[in-house]
Design a protein around this nucleic acid. Structure first.
Length: 521
RNA sequence: GCGGGUGUAACUCAGCGGUAGAGUGUUUGCUUCCCAAGCAAAAGGUCGAGGGUUCGAAUCCCUUCACCCGCUCCA
């Protein structure tokens, strides 16, 4: 794809364009808005639909080892107890009153923090559970040995100390005794199922779509007769009471996820994990994100959840810096094990070959629809100089562009309109197409450039005589002239990536400059 | 939640005690009109909201809401 300039764009430019052209509106705007909520307009809804479809196509339709699912947003609350979200998806935070910085107590203390009750009393220990286990195991080995097998039961319980806000120094400004008491932030939206608002009817809006997949593991297994390895894919809304939402649609409290849980036999996780990393990274590249704006970053040990074996983020260079589009985690057998324990149901897999039962391990590529859409918009945005005027273009991949083709009669002349309408109604059967006959042709090209429409079909007076129309490329502004009979097929090829210069039977190059000079002479 | 900043037309902004403005965009008409064209016209604002001071408030004061930047978290 042709790239004339590669200058970066700031978020305000994108927000403004989105509002002005109907991609994204501030939610509840006539009531003064609602923090961090955004509505997708006529173009935005198409873009998101295209992102979802591209994802579904690559991860479900074109694979024979992944099937889809659409689980409920509201699950049995026990699901969130088992997943750890009820306890763990909340963070006690302390704030330094001297410098107004906020910390998690474990960052102040460099250890693991456990909290109880509301308000929470925070306890900490200098070692987290995994390190503790490891340290303990090492202590059991013969003196001087680096490795070996420890034949013993579990280590003794760790000792915890209570967090004391009055004695600890602030890691940022060093002030002592300036911390607030730990405050609980529960990131799950809580509501009530049924008309009575009591404790027994509390339910949560899902903070991720993944758990709905784990809950249906056995259902999918038995109904589809799948064998490991296989995956379940799901797209849907999720809700998190983020402490700090922001950066436009990057972090919102209501957002949409595209998640896969890929189940593998324990010990056979490494290759599929590496495969998923590559495939997910390439998915973004194939849809047009520039390579220099995309990277794969491995999580440090301190970033990993205690059960996770490995995790990479696909990151994009947003205006506010490198930020996560997707997390791909090698999660071990934690999830199914948790649900098996809490539900009392057997979630193991029976391997016909080896005649053994085991809990499958899970690889989880988890992407954000809204974030992807934002990255595609930002990466596609371009400005160039055309005859001293600024041309703003969204160089969106044709698969993502909300409108594929614009039909533009040269003017609103009564002779041109019927043919324009006819072409429009024919093409609409294949794609999202826009018809526009208002104002000058140049202005309409620019309008389509700005919303990312890859091709414009122009009907002129000559079309009435020779039954040919021009196709104009958004990226190069080059034009060809083709018989109307071949229009649909030709556009199909162009949208699939064929060069604009490739001509169908009876087609010709259309030379704007010569024509203009002729007209002037 | 805390600190700092900003709210005026669809967008970008000016005005900062005395009749609400500009550019862009949008709409309509005319022109056989191919790259933000020309000419003519029009629509569009309870100046974020509420209260106060004042003869008079977009402008000064208070409150509130939203947004932006930072801190934490994450798709």
């Amino acid at each position: 794809m042709l790239r004339i300039s590669t200058k970066s764009v700031d978020m305000d430019t994108i927000v403004s364009l989105c509002k002005r052209r109907g991609y994204v509106f501030p939610s509840s705007e006539i009531y003064g808005g609602l923090g961090s909520a955004w509505d997708y307009g006529p173009l935005g809804v198409e873009l998101k639909r295209n992102v979802r479809e591209a994802w579904w196509r690559a991860n479900v339709q074109e694979r024979d080892d992944v099937v889809g699912l659409d689980s409920a947003i509201i699950l049995n609350p026990q699901a969130w107890v088992a997943s750890g979200h009820v306890k763990g998806f909340s963070d006690p935070l302390v704030e330094c009153l001297a410098c107004n910085q906020r910390f998690r107590p474990d960052q102040v203390l460099a250890g693991e923090v456990v909290r109880f009750g509301t308000p929470p009393i925070v306890y900490f220990t200098t070692l987290n559970a995994v390190d503790y286990q490891r340290e303990w195991a090492r202590a059991q080995l013969a003196p001087g040995a680096d490795s070996g097998t420890v034949m013993s039961a579990s280590p003794p319980p760790r000792t915890f100390q209570q967090f004391d806000s009055k004695k600890l120094p602030c890691p940022f400004c060093g002030a002592i005794g300036q911390f607030t008491e730990p405050r609980q932030f529960n990131l799950m939206f809580k509501t009530f199922a049924g008309p009575v608002e009591d404790a027994a009817s509390v339910v949560y809006l899902r903070p991720e779509t993944a758990q709905g997949i784990f809950l249906n593991f056995q259902n999918v297994l038995t109904t589809t007769r799948r064998k490991l390895p296989f995956g379940i894919a799901q797209i849907g809304k999720a809700f998190r009471n983020e402490i700090t939402p922001g950066n436009f649609i990057f972090r919102t409290r209501e957002f949409e996820q595209m998640e896969i849980e890929y189940f593998v036999k324990p010990g056979e996780d490494e290759k599929p994990f590496q495969d998923w990393l590559q495939q997910r990274f390439n998915w973004y590249l194939n849809l047009g994100l520039r390579k220099e704006n995309l990277r794969l970053r491995q999580h440090g040990k301190d970033e990993l959840a205690h059960y996770a074996k490995d995790c990479y983020d696909v990151e994009y260079l947003f205006p506010m810096g490198w930020s996560e589009l997707e997390g791909i985690a090698n999660r071990g057998d934690f999830d199914l094990k948790q649900h098996s324990q809490h539900s009392g149901k057997d979630l193991s897999y029976f391997d016909e070959g080896t005649k053994e039962h085991f809990i499958p391990c899970v690889i989880e590529p988890s992407a954000g629809v809204d974030r992807s859409a934002l990255a595609f918009l930002i990466d596609a945005y371009d400005e160039e100089e055309v005859k001293g005027e600024k041309r703003a273009i969204l160089r969106l991949h044709p698969a993502l562009a909300p409108i594929k083709v614009a039909v533009l009669p040269l003017s609103r002349n009564e002779k041109l309109v019927p043919l324009g309408r006819e072409v429009y109604s024919t093409l609409r059967k294949s794609w999202m197409v826009q018809y526009d006959d208002a104002q000058s042709i140049g202005r309409r090209y620019r309008r389509q450039d700005e919303i990312g429409t890859p091709f414009a079909v122009t009907i002129d007076f000559q079309s009435l005589e020779d039954n040919m129309v021009t196709i104009r490329s958004r990226d190069s502004m080059a034009q060809i002239r083709v018989p109307i009979a071949t229009l649909r097929g030709t556009l199909g090829k162009k949208l699939a990536g064929e060069a604009i210069e490739a001509l169908p039977e009876g087609g010709v190059m259309w030379k704007t400059e010569e024509k203009q000079e002729t007209a002037k002479a």
